[in-house]
Design a protein around this nucleic acid. Structure first.
Lengths: 206, 206, 206, 206
DNA sequence: GGCTAAGCGAGACGGTACGTCTTGTCTTTAG
DNA sequence: CTAAAGACAAGACGTACCGTCTCGCTTAGCC
């Protein structure tokens, strides 16, 4: 060509970065995190291994960075719906959570993440802060509004209640202790914020 | 064990078996599951690698079998104390759970197990059935007794309530979303079976 | 056999012995000596490994014992034909030798033997004495008769001449330095005992 | 080298290559070819196993490549002395050959080579062409000069005569059919090119 | 004709080496 | 001058055999 374009190094490096992100995510869902190799990511991304090692410290770091980047882009709003009925709203939230975890690609990816952060505290912190925390905060906010309108006793700690909701779903999903379906989601919500008098036989007797 | 290949087990060397178990557990707590190698286990146990591969299919299988065997031996009774006060009893159970997870060696081992079973469904099933299930069942039994004496509303599903108790603890431990201390254990119990009227603002208002 | 350990041979199972012999020979021609394993011989013969190790000291010992036993059975007489024409007779001998070495199964087996005896002096001795020596002796005997009837100069050492005949054929076969065909066999005989005056230009000039 | 896999050799590390060559040769003479292992070569050379497997296909290939390289360096001239007396000259050649084969380190190495090339045709070809052929060619050249000056009958084929000289020495050495000493070397030369009339009793009678 | 010592088939055992794979660093080469 | 391509040292992988060692079970031969 007559006019050769000047090589823009910053743009090129961005190309490599996103190619690596894409390759990392694709490979993880295709063969599972354990079977992903740095070499495979480099090959798939059309990139030298050194280009990966220059910016990331390990396979884990690459894949999570990719995951976080993807999530951040797709983030959108995390405001929970507020129909005025906190039980109905939370049922919706937990049903969504259950549905997402049931989706195979998601399930695989989340399990890989959960497994991996068990031996990398730094990654763990980042994943929790950037993927999980926003979700929890949204629930806490919704619970606070419920408290304001008297749908939740003032004594209840919204932060604890949020964990009471998320914890069992997470537990059942991760350990497969039972079927993870909408019915379970509803049960958790009902036992936590829905059933009057669950807290004590006395109140039920009232 | 279920995780072993069904060869002729009658000729199996008990000496080798227990040496491998011990080596596997020791190494896992010493260097962490990820850094354990089959070769190291074999060397430490004074055993040929083939003797490991003859009876187990992977590093994971060895370590879990070791863990399960150790737990089975130490099992003893799983009956929860029944002081008549279900809230107090459950506080005790969760405080114990929290304390155990706080113990470094235990923490490491449990995290390794949890991470590993994410990519081995067979192991996952076994771990859940043999390590977790008994614990859950004991809590369910205790809850049922509470129901019989009117400390828990008849409408509550003891199985769900048990997960409401365990789930949040597990979640906070695994993801380190917050401090895992006795206070948190108490909070979970209180919000789940202790606080009258948590279930609804109405009942609290009564 | 000399290569076996002197246990109590009276109880020895003939069935096992011959099954091992057969398996050893078959496997050697099938996959080559290097790829034969004691375990494979045992399996093929339907025999425990210990039964082999009880009577032989190594894979080599088994295969050679098998080979020697087979040869001894098939031995018959080694008398060379004596048509009165020593050149014609030796051409026949060498042509036969060449033809046998050209036969693939034989070629493989002989090469395996030759390779193996390079690192087992005891086996080497036995192979030479029991497989090679009779052949050489037969040639020497024929040469002596030729000498008696004046077809070979009295000064020639029949033992040396025999090696002059066998050596080149063996050399060309083992190292594949050239085509091993009847023409070569004839050439060797002719240059050694056939061509008048090969020995010196003077005699040729006579 | 012909025994290597045709990867991109331009990037190859000369340091690794020669360290491997040296280690291979040293180990072979120290413990014998059979007891040499690729792992030991790698360890001794301070090299990863993969670096060996990247460029050679087997232990044999490494050792021979090392041997060939060493021989090529040390090659020098292969011109045989020409004193005018072909018998004396050839006696010298064969005595040298005998002496070299009698030297223990050499004996071990040559036997190992000879054994090994029995199950690797490619290696066999290379060894013959690069180690043996030059030697044979030198003898053939000397014989041709002898023919020109009438010390060898024109009818004799120098190539065959060369094999008549080398073959028996090789045969006796490899199979240990008898003492390999200078006397034998002389005998072979005398019976082949030295003794007038060995070819026929008639010429002797003249 | 029963006892007993052996040989037997089987195969687990502690080992060694195999040839492959991946890691993270270092080096070459082409654009 | 940079970055792809990929060689390198290291070391674990899971497999194949080694030669030794029990196991029960024939089976031979001496009492």
């Amino acid at each position: 060509m007559a006019t050769t374009r000047p090589v823009d190094a910053s743009r090129r490096s961005g190309r490599a970065r996103s190619a690596i992100h894409r390759a990392a995510l694709d490979l993880t869902t295709e063969v599972g995190f354990t079977n992903v190799t740095v070499e495979a990511i480099a090959a798939r991304a059309g990139v030298g291994k050194q280009t990966i090692y220059r910016w990331w410290s390990s396979k884990g770091a690459v894949v999570f960075d990719a995951l976080l980047a993807a999530n951040e882009n797709a983030a959108g709003t995390l405001d929970l719906p507020d129909t005025g009925d906190v039980v109905a709203d939370l049922r919706g939230v937990l049903r969504t959570m259950v549905a997402e975890l049931a989706e195979p690609a998601n399930d695989r990816l989340q399990r890989a993440v959960t497994a991996e952060i068990q031996h990398d505290r730094a990654l763990a912190g980042e994943v929790v802060e950037r993927l999980l925390r926003p979700q929890v905060d949204a629930i806490v906010a919704r619970l606070r509004r419920a408290q304001e309108v008297g749908q939740l006793p003032p004594a209840a700690d919204p932060a604890i209640v949020a964990e009471l909701l998320i914890g069992p779903v997470f537990h059942r999903w991760l350990l497969r202790t039972g079927p993870l379906d909408p019915a379970f989601a509803d049960s958790v919500v009902d036992h936590t914020v829905g059933t009057p008098g669950l807290g004590s036989a006395d109140s039920a007797a009232v």
